[in-house]
Simulated scan of single mutants.
Amino acid sequence: MRIYRIDHVAQVVPDLDAQVSFLSRVFGFRPVSQWDNPAAGTKGVRLEIPGSWGHAWLVLAPSGDSSPLATWLDDHGGRPGLHHVGAEVPDLDAAIVELEERGLKVTDGVPGRWTEASLTPPEHGPGVLWRLRGPGTLAMAGDEDATPVEASDVDGPTLGIVALDHICQAFGDRDELARWYADLAGFVQVWRTADDEHPDMADLVLNVPGSSICWEVIMPRGEDSFIEKFLSRNGAAAHHVTFQVSDWDAALAACEHHGLNTFDEETGVTDGAAWKHTFVHPKQTGGVLVQLFWEQRPGVWVRSDKIPPGSR
């Protein structure tokens, strides 16, 4: 199976308008289309992510009397959160066959158009939900009859986001998951920390062929790791989503302006160029842990030469 590209990241919220307003005012996302499809049980808005051509952020909410999204929210205690990652594959039918042969559960979508599956190894699943579609229409969230949204001006500062950089998944063994993704969908390892670089975690980053969005895997190490706690609560789920900002001081000022509290800020220098990153709690972003990063020169924060020989 091959993935042409990641199309979108989708979150589910109980209040659609409030979340779209928040993402527009604070993140600088631009709504481009909207829909309300009670038959599919969903209403939503597609938003452009600055600097991420071809990638979108979808905000979904329940619609109608028997919405699967209402069930999803109920199962999550009414809390919003990341729902799925949408991606295009060259041959949907062949992808379904491949997934089923690997023991992955493929759920009903729209036959011939899209389907859903966790791509995590089945013995460790369910993990991150992927919504896969074949070539053709972008509609894969009940948005077959979406209507355009006129762009409106945003008052006040935004975070100055310039790209969706990567999605991070927690897993018990980073190398096991990296090998799985490489074999399943051709993901390529481009960066990793040394085993003992951090006392409570180790990570690596994979390129997703056809997409500028990368996939990070974090695993626990040592005693009392925060990742171990996360896995015990959530399983091999998405841990956070990372955005690049153009101006660090302006981004932090925007967070303060909008009442967003940041935590776990880290700074460093690589080859004489500075980089910085921090986090915003999911309670303030609509259920998604958000990481913000800035780098003085492209490629200093995540480096393709930080891979020991023989581990690619």
Rank of each mutant, 00 (worst) to 15 (best):
G134W: 09
T285Y: 10
L23G: 01
L129K: 13
A95L: 11
V280G: 00
S211Q: 02
A61G: 11
D15N: 12
V97D: 12
G286Y: 03
V302C: 07
H83T: 03
L132G: 11
L184K: 07
V20E: 03
E228Q: 13
P298T: 07
V85Y: 00
P80V: 07
V154N: 10
W248H: 02
A61P: 08
D91W: 12
D183K: 14
W72L: 06
V290C: 10
K276A: 15
G51F: 05
G160D: 06
M1Y: 04
T137W: 13
S67G: 09
Q296V: 06
V59L: 13
L159D: 01
L204D: 02
P308W: 10
G51H: 03
T242R: 03
A61D: 04
T137M: 14
L73H: 11
R113P: 03
H198G: 01
L58R: 09
E265R: 12
E216D: 11
W53A: 13
S33C: 09
T242N: 03
L252Q: 13
R312P: 00
Q189I: 00
V128I: 14
T115P: 05
K43E: 11
D247T: 03
V45T: 13
D36W: 02
P38Q: 05
L119M: 13
Q291F: 00
R79E: 12
P298W: 02
V97R: 15
D108H: 11
V162N: 02
A56T: 09
R174V: 10
A273L: 04
E101Q: 15
L82Y: 00
E295I: 02
S66N: 14
H124K: 13
N37K: 08
L119H: 07
W215A: 00
M1C: 06
E150C: 06
D15K: 04
Q296H: 11
P209W: 00
M1A: 12
P282L: 04
A170E: 02
L58T: 01
Q19G: 08
F187T: 01
